[in-house]
Every structure is written in structure tokens, then in C-alpha cells.
């Protein structure tokens, strides 16, 4: 199964889902569906989050499992936190309460 991408390869803008289908009953839904925060991360960033959860949120354990250093893992986690915060901010601007 291919991975979803969240940015337009042409202009870099955020993509939205316009069509979804159920492979079991063949129902197709069309509309404007927003990607969740995690789907808007890159595949590597999403996989980082998965590994982080699997390591029970322990940076030390994650570093040990992946064979990298603690500061390397911590630095990427900080990058992802900043990115998630930026995405949340963008979402607030796109859809104010």
C-alpha cells in the first residue's frame, strides 16, 4: 500500500482528500476531507512518531533501538514538535472557531 502525501508536489501547498472508497463494498465518498495532523507530516516523521510510541516515549530507549545517540533523537523530536505546532497554528488560521 502506498503512503499518503500531504504536500502538493507542484506548488508545495497542503493537499486535501477529495475522494475515498471502501474496497469491501465499493462505496465511494466525494467531498473535501481534511488530513489529520499526523498525515500532514512526512512519511519519515510519521514513522518517527510510531517508533517513539513503540519505545513508550523514551528517547533513550528509542536511541538504543535505532542505534543513534540521544541528542540526535531529541533534536528530531524537537523538529517534529515545532512542525506540529506550526501545522496547528495554520489550521487555526484556516478554520477559526
Amino acid at each position: 500500500m502506498a503512503e499518503i502525501v500531504s504536500q502538493c508536489p507542484s506548488c508545495g501547498g497542503p493537499l486535501e482528500v477529495q475522494r475515498m472508497g471502501c474496497p469491501a463494498c465499493q462505496i465511494t465518498l466525494e467531498g473535501s476531507f481534511q488530513l489529520g495532523l499526523l498525515e500532514r507530516l512526512s512519511p519519515a516523521e510519521r514513522q518517527f512518531v510510531v517508533e517513539f510510541v513503540k519505545a513508550s516515549g523514551s528517547l533513550k530507549e528509542m536511541a538504543r533501538r535505532l542505534g543513534v545517540s540521544y541528542p540526535t533523537v531529541r533534536s528530531r523530536l524537537d523538529d517534529i514538535i515545532s512542525r506540529v505546532e506550526r501545522l496547528e497554528e495554520e489550521r487555526r488560521h484556516e478554520h477559526p472557531e
Partner: peptide, 17 residues
């Protein structure tokens, strides 16, 4: 729009390194 699956622990290692 979709892309080839390039995730997994190896992809994360590459991303980290």
C-alpha cells in the same frame, strides 16, 4: 495522491542520521 512506501525503522534511521 500517494507515494511508494518508504517507511520503517531503516527509513527513520536514515532520517535521523
Amino acid at each position: 495522491m500517494s507515494t511508494r512506501n518508504e517507511t520503517g525503522p531503516e527509513a527513520v534511521q536514515q532520517y535521523l542520521r
